[in-house]
Design a binder for these strands. Sequence first.
DNA 1: CATTAATCTATCGATTTAGTAGATTTTAAA
DNA 2: TTTAAAATCTACTAAATCGATAGATTAATG
Lengths: 138, 138
Amino acid sequence: MLSKKTKYGLKALVYMTRKEDNKPVLISEIAESENISKKFLEIILLQLKNSGFLGSKKGKGGGYYLLKDPEQITIAALMRILEGPIAPLPCVSLHFYEKCSDCKTEEACSLNRVMVELRDSMLSVLEKKTLADLSAEG
Amino acid sequence: MLSKKTKYGLKALVYMTRKEDNKPVLISEIAESENISKKFLEIILLQLKNSGFLGSKKGKGGGYYLLKDPEQITIAALMRILEGPIAPLPCVSLHFYEKCSDCKTEEACSLNRVMVELRDSMLSVLEKKTLADLSAEG
DNA sequence: CATTAATCTATCGATTTAGTAGATTTTAAA
DNA sequence: TTTAAAATCTACTAAATCGATAGATTAATG
């Protein structure tokens, strides 16, 4: 299950993408429209800014705006920022690899092969779909 | 990411499956062999028993044993017991469906369609693979 | 009856999650 | 140059979850 943080982050980005021009959007406007706690959304958008997806402007007329083309932003990339690893186990993660302490070797691990398969099937969707796909009318 | 509970549970079941006969296996034997905290494993196996996957026998010669054919036990079924929902959002879950409070309708939810696709791609692996697949030598 | 091994009860510390409160800084506009 | 708007920063908090531990109880075997 995705955390609310990820869910809210994705929804906020879709909201911003659907705005015709690329002018700064108010946190409070997104929060109200998408039923998200404003303070929680602050944290989320700040994180997306620090990861290079969003820019911001303070003061009157300020807000957050997309820095990249929505078609260039995959759901996978966003999930790695907001949710962390996509892989079901650390030992099959491409971006957050860690050895499992309870396994002698990865070849000997009974779960490894199936989890690689699961990871790849998830990535086949998440690396293909972009913010532009989410924002397209259904 | 799967919890350690799920990981340990799956590994324990693989261990039991690989035992030639279907005699009761000691918790402590599994715990030692798989590097799992014995007390934590107790909780996990008890849960698998209460869900109908395992039987148990107390006293000398006791332990846990499989109640079903490993080929009949899908990873998906085990994950639903140990981990909970497989779906990335409650509103796309087949077994644990819940309406999202922040969405007016599911059709209007920008995430719904992609998350259905993600769920189905995960299930295509998890419903196909069984305990027998995990237990087969690699 | 003694031993073995599952089962039950009761915690526990650490971390994560989701959210709140309030002060500060930056910027645009009056 | 002041004022108001809006992001940013600091600092909490309550609740849930995770992983693990300690010890008592019950059931089965020999």
